[in-house]
Amino acid sequence: MPKTEAELFAFLAELGIDASTMRHPPLFTVADSQALRGEIAGGHTKNLFLKDKKDNFFLVTVGEEAVVDLKQIHHLIGASGKVSFGKPEMLMELLGVVPGAVTVFGVINDTEQRVKLILDEELMTHSLINAHPLTNEATTSIGADDLLKFVKATGHDAAILKVSA
């Protein structure tokens, strides 16, 4: 069973991580979320759930405005050949979320560390990072250093790479 939003918040609290969350109507796209600008400070995320031809999975988290070359990203992230978007069933199985709610916080559900997490270098220059807390009906703000602490506590090692143009 995937973790709930409440379980995510409890995990963050156990780690001593301060996070704030704003409720809003469901947001499915970056364009939807841009309507909230001005209300939520910090770097806003866009997430790509990718797989390669050997069924290796990647979660690439970039800034909402970032441009990512999907034809070339496999060279940067260590994929076996070109990548494609992962199927919704695998997204739910590995990260416990549905399309439209993909989030860096989903690694809490990847208990077998099957997903390689890539954080864009430019996104990580923000002191505050914003992501969905396992639901697209809220946005959680967390410090960049605390995000890395969270990721490590889930057993993942985030690769911080320049993946956006």
Rank of each mutant, 00 (worst) to 15 (best):
G100N: 05
A6C: 10
D146Y: 13
V102D: 09
K51D: 03
H126Y: 11
I40R: 06
P25G: 01
T135H: 10
A41C: 11
A101M: 07
Q113S: 13
D145K: 09
K152G: 03
E65Y: 02
N47R: 06
T103F: 14
V107W: 08
K53Y: 03
M124H: 08
V102W: 09
L15E: 13
L91R: 01
K152W: 01
L147I: 04
L27S: 04
L128T: 14
A6I: 12
I129H: 12
K54Q: 07
N56W: 04
F105I: 00
V115G: 05
P99K: 03
H44I: 02
K82V: 03
S20L: 09
T61C: 14
N109S: 09
I160G: 12
G106P: 06
S164M: 04
S80T: 12
A165F: 01
A19D: 02
V102N: 11
Q113L: 06
V83Y: 06
I73W: 01
L134W: 05
S127C: 04
L27V: 12
L134D: 03
Q113T: 13
L70A: 02
P2A: 10
T45A: 10
V67C: 01
G81R: 02
N109F: 06
F57P: 09
H44Q: 15
Q113N: 15
R23A: 15
E14A: 13
G86I: 08
T140W: 09
F49G: 06
K87D: 11
M22W: 00
P25D: 14
G81K: 05
V163Q: 12
G106V: 01
D55C: 04
S127M: 08
K162A: 13
A10I: 07
M92Q: 14
H156T: 03
K87L: 14
D120Y: 01
A35H: 14
F28R: 09
G155P: 15
I129D: 12
N47L: 07
S127I: 02
T45R: 08
V163M: 00
H156I: 01
I118A: 00
P25H: 00
T135S: 15
S164W: 06
M90L: 09
N130R: 02
A159F: 01
L134F: 06
V107A: 12
V30W: 03
A35M: 12
T140F: 14
K82E: 15
R114N: 10
M22L: 15
H132I: 02
L128C: 07
M90G: 00
M1A: 13
E112S: 12
D69S: 10
E64Y: 00
D120C: 08
D69L: 00
K71D: 09
P88F: 02
L8W: 06
T103L: 11
P88Q: 04
I17R: 14
V67G: 10
G106D: 05
F11S: 05
V102S: 10
D55T: 01
